[in-house]
Design a protein around this nucleic acid. Structure first.
Length: 318
DNA sequence: GCGTCCAGGTCTACC
DNA sequence: GGTAGACCTGGACGC
């Protein structure tokens, strides 16, 4: 699909805001999907706004202390000022442009681990996708697989079932939609994308999101954190760990790998059994970081190399 | 080359 | 209400 109509506007994030760190996070987390393109300060990506597939070009301008993002949204239809205002509000939120980091930084400066990561990643904001389906599928594909295999499943899923848009000289594939996946055969999905038993959860998830009036990402953000989490736990294939990943309020998503990492940071040694240590490590993280647990988790996993160096602790990176 | 184990969880049957 | 076992696949490891 070729997208030729452009809507232009500027976003001025709350400083400090490091555009590159925010849209291309050091641990390899992409803004919206792993197939988006980043080149010399500009990101090309694609998503759905109100079920309409749009292309997005973001260019970081200014400095960390005086940031500016030039935005171009490419669509097949022409849109008016009202649509543009809605898109600007949504994208600002997705880019974390309205996050004020000052309180988190004040807290982090007094913590033996966090004081290092906020120094290394100064100005990195948290971002989130506007579609629950993509976040939930990502969480499902992370389950019971090494990161390399999760990435392979993710790329295969997007290539096999995502729509391609052409805009601004780029070709970008977007995450598949629940509308499309609800009609796909489970065995076909498993075979084409090598996702194994996860295919069942993905198809059931797509059907559930279409069948009931499930809250949107924005609605989940307006709920209190516990209520949002409860809603997410009702989705097929979404348990404790995945709900913490998807929840716009953030959680403390400890799995086998992060139990090892945080176990080492908290207690100075690797747990004897990572799977058994998950609950203990999670409790300690929430006790230590309280309402900042998500931001602390987010910053820490992006800076494991820096922390290994500064703390003199060998941490497994992936 | 082959068999076994296990990995960045979740669900379900069984007690 | 608590928990053991199953679940796709592919890489690592031992033999």
């Amino acid at each position: 699909m070729r997208l030729s109509n452009r809507t232009l506007f500027v976003i001025r994030p709350i400083p400090p805001y490091d555009f590159e760190l925010t849209v291309r996070k050091p641990a390899g987390w992409s803004l919206l999907n792993p197939l988006e393109v980043y080149r010399e300060g500009t990101l090309w990506t694609a998503t759905h706004f109100d079920r309409e597939l749009v292309g997005i070009r973001l260019t970081g301008k200014g400095t960390v202390e005086h940031p500016r993002i030039d935005v171009a949204i490419f669509s097949s239809k022409r849109h008016g000022a009202g649509w543009a205002a809605g898109a600007e509000k949504l994208l600002s939120s997705m880019l974390g442009a309205d996050q004020d980091l000052s309180q988190f930084y004040s807290f982090a400066k007094r913590d033996g681990i966090l004081k290092h990561v906020i120094d290394d990643l100064y100005g990195m904001h948290d971002t989130f996708s506007n579609t629950i389906f993509s976040e939930a599928v990502l969480a499902i594909l992370l389950q019971m697989a090494p990161l390399k295999r999760s990435n392979e499943m993710m790329v295969s899923f997007i290539n096999e079932y995502g729509d391609t848009v052409e805009f601004d000289g780029e070709r970008i594939r977007a995450w598949p939609t629940p509308q499309k996946m609800a009609n796909v055969d489970q065995e076909e999905l498993a075979r084409r994308c090598r996702v194994g038993y996860r295919a069942k959860s993905i198809i059931k998830l797509a059907k559930r999101l279409l069948a009931v009036d499930f809250p949107s990402a924005e609605e989940l953000e307006r709920m209190d954190s516990d209520r949002a989490r409860e809603a997410l736990l009702e989705l097929p294939g979404i348990g404790d760990y995945s709900a913490d990943i998807i929840n716009p309020h953030g959680g403390f998503p400890i799995d086998v790998w992060s139990a090892e990492v945080f176990g080492k940071l908290f207690f100075g040694k690797e747990p004897r059994n990572n799977r058994d240590a998950v609950e203990r490590v999670k409790r300690e993280g929430i006790r230590r970081w309280g309402k900042w647990a998500w931001m602390a988790f987010f910053y820490t996993v992006q800076d494991l190399e820096g922390l290994s160096r500064k703390l003199g602790t060998r941490i497994r990176l992936t």
